[in-house]
């Protein structure tokens, strides 16, 4: 008895070693890329965040935590933080419910449904810079679509990208247009994986469509929802390439996100130490959000 267990455990450990060995080989290419493109730059940014550095030559001018102080007390930093928060909140409260609603309407397989689905998904495929330039034209108060709409309604439309009150709503609209389809697709994938029998059984029991939606469909795709919420939050934290062509962070630096803040005040102004400190702050926020989200949402979901 004891002998067999010994043999079994020995067997198990060799199998474990083999699996570990195989896994290591398979993981090497990805690991090299990850270390080279993520870990290494991250350590670098962390290192030069303690220096005053204009991007040229070796690091010589150590100044401790000064850059971090400069970032946190920068006039535009609270604006960037607020904008990122605004983007995340509006994504969660408006974009995701809309995407869910569209997904519930469009998840069945039929030709006209897939036409709509494709239309909604197309903006996501478009490069961010291109999308930004298109919307810059749409919003252009002189030649764009917005003043044309104003003309037909006989009202004067604002130059949305030039006014501090309008610029964030205008950007949020573009973000929704751009990423709405992506979230919808996540939900559609989830909805399509719900076994038909479950819904049919409910229907036979006389459950109303509304109740099927609230008590069967949505609960069954909660892991898809959890993932899409996560993408929406992290996406807001990282939003950058739409901002540059649309506003460049203006007017009066009122539409910066954390990353465009980093780019404008760190890279363009050749204050790479400051930029490094900003990226470390951003990294800490991202990791914090991820860990918190895992603990509070994903972990509970697994139970």
């Amino acid at each position: 008895m004891s002998q067999t267990s010994v043999i079994q455990s020995g067997k198990r450990s060799t199998r474990g070693q083999k699996a570990f060995f195989q896994a290591s080989i398979l993981i090497v290419p990805a690991l090299i890329l990850f270390i080279g493109l993520v870990i290494w730059p991250l350590l670098n940014a962390f290192m030069f965040s303690f220096y005053k550095w204009n991007g040229f030559g070796p690091l010589t001018d150590f100044e401790g935590l000064d850059n971090y102080g400069d970032v946190l007390t920068h006039r535009t930093f609270p604006t960037a933080l607020r904008n990122v928060g605004l983007l995340a909140v509006t994504s969660l409260l408006i974009q995701l419910p809309l995407a869910l609603w569209a997904a519930l309407a469009l998840y069945q397989k039929a030709w006209f449904v897939s036409v709509f689905r494709t239309l909604f998904f197309l903006p996501y495929v478009l490069a961010e810079i291109a999308a930004g330039l298109i919307w810059r034209f749409v919003y252009d108060g002189e030649y764009g679509l917005v003043p044309a709409i104003g003309d037909t309604l006989h009202t004067e439309m604002p130059f949305v990208l030039a006014e501090r009150a309008w610029v964030m709503p205008a950007i949020i609209l573009v973000v929704m247009w751009k990423y709405f389809g992506f979230h919808m697709m996540i939900y559609i994938a989830g909805l399509q994986s719900i076994p038909n029998e479950v819904i049919e059984a409910a229907r036979m029991d006389g459950v109303s469509r509304r109740k099927i939606m609230w008590h069967i469909k949505i609960p069954m795709i909660k892991s898809s929802i959890a993932i899409s919420v996560f993408f929406a939050i992290v996406g807001s934290l990282q939003l950058f390439d739409l901002i540059v062509p649309l506003t460049g962070g203006g007017p009066q630096n009122s539409s910066h996100t954390l990353v465009s803040f980093l780019y404008e005040f760190g890279i363009r102004r050749m204050k790479l130490g400051f930029g490094g400190a900003t990226s470390v702050v951003l990294f800490v926020i991202c990791v914090g959000v991820t860990l918190l989200y895992r603990r509070l949402v994903l972990a509970r979901m697994d139970q």
Binding site: Y139, D140, G141, E142, F159, L161, A162, E163, T247, G250, P251, Q252
Partner: peptide
């Protein structure tokens, strides 16, 4: 010009 805060150099020069 209206909306000058969103105008690039090309926009303003064209205006």
């Amino acid at each position: 010009q209206p909306g000058f805060e969103a105008a690039t150099y090309g926009d303003a020069s064209g205006y």
